[in-house]
Amino acid sequence: MSLQSVSDFLARHAPDIRIVEKDTSTATVAEAATAHGVEPAQIAKTLSLWLKDEVVLLVMGGDTRIDNRKYKDRFGAKAKMLNADEVQQWTGHPVGGVCPFGLPRDLRIFADVSLQKFEEVLPAAGATHAAVRIAPAHLAQLVKAEWVDVAQEQAQAPVPA
């Protein structure tokens, strides 16, 4: 049902975007990056969070983590993840397939600036083996996401001499 809700959403709002289904699991960032031949940072993971008494979605780079200080400064509360049953209930998607498309109810959606360094990112598409390829700006526009900066700074690898 979840894959179908994403398919229906895209057919209505972005018919040019196609769902890419794989024969193997893409439920984790590492699995998705390998299956799609991209770096983990390009996987757009969607986190389901309680923000006080409201559920929100946060789409961010696959190699990032929430910076608790930035998150609290931005939202005035500590980040608290939903459990697996709550994720399914609120998003209609299984853990590993959560995305901001085809939701059963309106939720506020935020996109972290960590996605903006790529021409294309790959969020899940409602199933643990499906994703879409989309420009970050198009993703944000399509789901009416607000851009935020709540990811931890990534340490830069030293440049060999």
Rank of each mutant, 00 (worst) to 15 (best):
S5K: 09
T46G: 11
S5R: 12
L51D: 05
E120F: 01
D63Y: 00
E31C: 08
A14R: 07
A137T: 07
G96K: 11
M1P: 13
A33F: 06
G96V: 07
A125Y: 04
A131F: 09
D53Y: 10
A30D: 14
S7L: 10
H129L: 01
D73Y: 10
Q88E: 15
A32S: 12
K52L: 13
V143L: 06
I109T: 05
A127Q: 04
V150S: 08
D73K: 12
A27R: 09
A161Q: 09
D112G: 05
R69P: 01
L47N: 10
R69C: 03
K72E: 15
K80F: 02
T128Y: 01
A111K: 02
L103R: 11
Q42H: 06
Q156W: 14
A145N: 06
K72S: 14
A135L: 08
D149F: 11
I19R: 01
F75Y: 07
K52N: 15
L115C: 10
W147F: 13
R105M: 03
D85P: 08
A111Y: 00
L10M: 01
S48W: 08
H36Q: 15
D63Q: 03
K22N: 13
R18N: 12
L82D: 02
R18V: 02
P100R: 06
L51E: 08
C99N: 04
K72A: 13
A140D: 05
D73W: 08
W147T: 11
M81P: 01
D67W: 09
L51K: 14
E39W: 14
A140P: 03
G61F: 00
E119W: 05
T24N: 13
H13C: 00
Q4K: 08
E119S: 12
T34I: 12
L51A: 06
E120M: 01
A151L: 13
A30S: 14
V150Y: 11
V132R: 02
A151D: 11
V29E: 12
A111P: 01
T24I: 09
N68F: 10
F9V: 04
V38H: 14
V38D: 13
I43F: 04
A124F: 04
E21H: 09
P136S: 04
F118V: 08
R69W: 13
E21L: 08
I43L: 02
I19A: 04
T91I: 00
V6T: 04
L10W: 03
P123R: 05
D8A: 15
E54C: 09
H138P: 00
R65P: 04
A30G: 07
C99F: 07
W50E: 07
